[in-house]
Simulated scan of single mutants.
Amino acid sequence: MKKITKLLFILSAFYLVPCQSFSQGCVAIRQFSGLGNAVGQGNMLNKGELNISGSYRYFKSFRHFRGTEEEHNRLTDHTEVINKQHGLDINLSYAFSERMYGIVSMPLQYNERSSLYEHGRTERHTSYSKGLGDMRIGAGYWLLSGEKAKRGNTAIGLGIKFPTGDYAATSTFYNQGAEGLELEKTVDQSIQLGDGGTGLIVDFQGLWNMSSTLFWYYDGFYMFNPKETNGTPTNRSRPNEAIMSVPDQFALRTGVFKSFEKIHGLGASLGGRIEGIPVHDVIGGSEGFRRPGYVISVEPGVSYMLGNITGTLNVPVALFRNRTQSVTDIENSTPDNVVHGDAAFADYLINFTVALRIPKKEKEVFNSL
């Protein structure tokens, strides 16, 4: 049981970044949109103990896809959109009991978006956004306890995503209109700090012992965003794409983790993940502008645990990218002209996490004589 608990603590940092976010680029899933095992860290703690973690994520998206086909000409013509996104997620988790846990998660972001088409199509310029993202709070419950959890465990959780991030962030755009003015306008949906909706997160995670040093892990989430649009202008020409949509999001990860007995505290993982934005929301409407799609990646990782501190690095590498046809694409299509928007994706993500477990101080008991 102690070995499972230790491995759960090491693996916790691998689960902190299920996505976001997001798919990697213009498919605008927010980073750290799911609570993942950031929630589940409570299981690695005794009742009343805390876990504090910080998780940094970076990617550069520049490869354009329309459906599953890459548009190689965007690179050769130097017309590609380049998104660079930095995110820091700060998590505080608490164990209410052996099986019940909770977490508060606060994301911070800094984003850059370089393009031609947003700046008059003659010069490349960059727009920016930075600040607090959409905060999340959640709780969960491990299904097994005691002897039943010796070989592994699975947890289910619920969370709420609050619209604390600016969903109408602005930046300077150049060469606007016939007079080539500089105007302050809302930035692209892919680098907005929030989506403007209150979301419900359903999540699960688990770890099972396959051999003395090999474990199977899995986790995933779906975020329901009932709100249809958020009122933020997209600066796009088509009337049905004038306002930003508030889309659902999802992610699923699974793989194996191996601990190394000869190097105490060292572990490595290899798995796969899928994350993205659906075409249609499960609850509420799906109108407004969105770039639906998903990316499938292979995800290697390494971790090291020293005392109560665990550091992890995982680098998902994209294998398959698909910018699916949106609701507005379908609405704007005719038998003679099928509309299918594109999106830029990254080749890989960099996720680095440091987690600190704070043990509960034992109360000293003095027996009176």
Rank of each mutant, 00 (worst) to 15 (best):
T5M: 08
K6G: 14
L8R: 08
F22V: 12
Q24A: 09
Q31K: 09
M44C: 08
L45E: 04
K47S: 03
L50R: 01
N51Y: 02
S55L: 05
R57H: 11
F59G: 07
F65C: 11
R66Y: 07
E69P: 04
I82Y: 01
N91D: 13
N91T: 06
A95W: 00
S97T: 05
I103Q: 12
I103D: 12
I103T: 13
S105W: 15
L108Q: 07
Y110G: 07
E112A: 12
H125E: 10
W142V: 03
A155P: 02
T164Y: 11
G165V: 03
S171C: 13
T172R: 15
Q176H: 06
G177S: 05
E182P: 02
E184G: 14
K185E: 15
D195I: 13
L200S: 10
I201V: 13
L207V: 10
N209A: 10
N209R: 14
T213D: 15
L214R: 10
F215M: 11
Y218D: 08
Y222K: 13
E228P: 04
T229R: 08
N235Q: 08
R236N: 07
P247Y: 01
Q249L: 09
L252A: 12
R253S: 08
T254W: 13
V256H: 06
L266K: 03
L270S: 01
V282D: 07
I283A: 14
G284W: 08
G285I: 04
G285E: 05
S286C: 05
G288F: 02
P292S: 04
G293V: 00
I296Q: 01
S297I: 01
L306I: 15
T310H: 11
L313F: 09
R321K: 15
R323F: 04
P335A: 04
V339G: 09
G341I: 08
D347I: 02
Y348I: 00
I350F: 06
P359N: 03
V365A: 10
L369D: 12
